[in-house]
Nucleic acid binder design. Structure first.
Length: 498
RNA sequence: GGCCCGUUGGUCAAGCGGUUAAGACUCCGGCCUUUCACGCCGGCAACACGAGUUCGAGUCUCGUACGGGUCACCA
């Protein structure tokens, strides 16, 4: 038994909740991962506990440059600050598994000594890497379910072979009879017959632990009290329990969450073209909105309320509200959350966020981004929609005169031309070009002409925007465009209608 | 295929043996409005199926169907 273990334990505060988000650094953060992180964060912080980030990079072949940084940045953008992690350290570090390499072997050997694991010298390389076929898998697992010849090797003999330099892996010696019951805070008690458990590898030939083993060791060493992870791991949990028991360690609380799906049969996956966290952000979704939406995929606070800040979630989050069934990610609903969050922004916040998007198509310096932002805010679902919505400010698009025909406003091409002809001189006579004077002038004109406001406003808006749908009405657009450009566009309209 | 898990409207979901089975998104009407949107009002739409248990079942039990997970020296 490595004697520093006890020291390690004394560094962990007693009686406090400790959770961890333990992603493998793949180079991106997926939506499901964000949700797992969120739940882990909430469980810890709700009770004043500790939230830890641990990087699970035991697969050396999968190293991705900068992947850890992406995870760190995402967590920080989303406001989920961790108390211990690879970049900030902590009492039970390091927090990157590849840096804890030497930690695992002694524990695996301890298990061998205790007879709960064994050295295995079998060569299984043939069906390595490329072999993915069901047949290969079947034959491999068949082999494992049969008694591995190494399983019953006397411990001393194995030890000798190891010392002589023979390559080996260490496998867990799963019990062949009895049953193991796992208590999960979401799924309840799940009982598995031990004979269905395989002798999973604990330590790989390269000396690195497998994911499962590293998880057990690190969760214990780091004092994790609540283990949060996806349901894909639920069937290996009985093996975890057997390991914990072999060590004589306390079994943590398991909180298993079902996957976030693209549709009824497929998980959300980057491979299949589903957006990652970063994709969504660059599509103009707000981190807060995404976090809020994702929280509700698979968890419900029970009431009718749906909008929660991270702080507010902390107050209402309950593990009992987590659902067992998978949830399908619905982009439409995300959009709804996003527009709610956009509308809740102050005008300055929104202007700051929107300006870069506005400037993608509106290059004219005379046009105020803030003025556009003002009329845009209530009709913006996501930021990336903005350039296309405001492009007409820069340049009057080519448009079809059919746009002047609108039944509800009682306009057709003939009436529209009359309206524009009437509007031109009165607009020209305005001295102070502000919203009020434009408004008053046009309303007066409509009265004078004895037409409803819409009959006048519709053609004006079409003439100055060239679009059927615009952010804001005719008056705001006239104002933003400025007097000269407004008059010019109206003249263009008159010509088009002639 | 073995083992494990799940199943309330198109989607997210509330419900914990007695309800007219919430709410949100989407969609469709209507109102408001200078368009669209926002907002407000209204509408369509669900307990997978079959047996039990019970006075009574979306809620409990068992089967069936469908879906998911897992069965790697990947995580």
């Amino acid at each position: 038994m490595p004697n520093w273990f006890d020291d390690m334990e004394s560094k962990i505060p007693k009686g406090k909740v400790r959770t961890r988000f333990a992603p493998s650094p793949t180079g991106y953060m997926h939506v499901g991962g964000l949700r797992t992180a969120l739940y882990a964060y909430l469980v810890a912080k709700k009770s004043g506990g500790t939230f830890i980030l641990r990087i699970e990079d035991t697969d050396q072949a999968r190293f991705v440059e900068g992947a850890t940084e992406i995870i760190i940045k995402t967590l920080s953008d989303a406001g989920m600050n961790y108390d211990e992690g690879p970049d900030i350290g902590g009492p039970v570090g390091p927090y990157t598994q590849s840096q804890r390499r030497e930690t695992y072997l002694p524990y695996a050997e301890l298990l061998c000594e205790k007879g709960a694991a064994y050295y295995c010298f079998c060569e299984l390389d043939e069906q390595d890497e490329t072999e993915d076929s069901a047949e290969a898998k079947e034959s491999a697992s068949k082999f494992l379910m049969e008694d591995d010849p190494c399983r019953n090797l006397p411990y001393e003999d194995s030890k000798l072979r190891v010392q002589s330099g023979a390559p080996f892996v260490i496998r867990m010696k799963a019990p062949r009879d009895g049953a193991t019951t796992v208590s999960d805070m979401v799924f309840g008690d799940v009982t598995t017959q031990n004979k269905t458990l395989d002798d999973m590898v604990l330590l790989k030939r390269d000396g690195m632990p497998t994911y499962n083993f590293a998880n057990v060791i690190d969760d214990h060493l780091m004092g994790i009290t609540h283990v949060m992870r996806g349901s894909e791991y639920i069937s290996s949990t009985p093996k975890y329990n057997i390991l914990y028991e072999a060590f004589g360690w306390e079994i943590p609380h398991y909180i298993t969450v079902s996957p976030v799906m693209r549709d009824a049969q497929h998980k959300l996956s980057k491979r299949h073209g589903d957006p990652t966290y970063d994709d969504l952000i660059s599509q103009g979704y707000l981190p807060e909105a995404l976090l809020n939406y994702v929280a509700l995929l698979g968890w419900s606070p029970g009431g009718e309320r749906e909008i929660f800040t991270l702080q507010e979630m902390l107050e209402v989050f309950e593990i009992s509200g987590i659902s067992k069934s998978p949830a399908i990610f619905d982009m439409e609903k995300l959009k709804h959350f996003n527009s709610e969050y956009i509308r809740a922004l102050s005008i300055d916040q929104f202007t700051n966020l929107a300006e870069p998007y506005i400037r993608q198509t509106v290059r004219n310096e005379h046009i105020q981004a803030k003025a556009i932002a003002q009329i845009l805010q209530a009709r913006c679902e996501k930021l990336s929609d903005i350039p296309e919505k405001v492009d007409f400010f820069d340049e009057l698009p080519q448009y079809d005169t059919e746009l002047y025909v609108h039944k509800k406003s009682k306009t057709d091409k003939v009436i529209s031309k009359e309206m524009l002809l009437a509007a031109l001189p009165v607009l020209e006579s305005i001295n102070v070009w502000d919203v009020d004077s434009i408004h008053n002038t046009l309303i007066e004109l409509a009265e004078k002409l004895e037409v409803k406001n819409a009959t006048l406003m519709w053609p004006v808006r079409i003439a100055i925007s060239g679009k059927a749908v615009t952010p804001g009405g005719a008056i705001e657009i006239c104002f933003i465009l400025g007097k000269d450009e407004t008059l010019r566009r109206i003249s263009v309209g008159i010509e088009k209608l002639t």
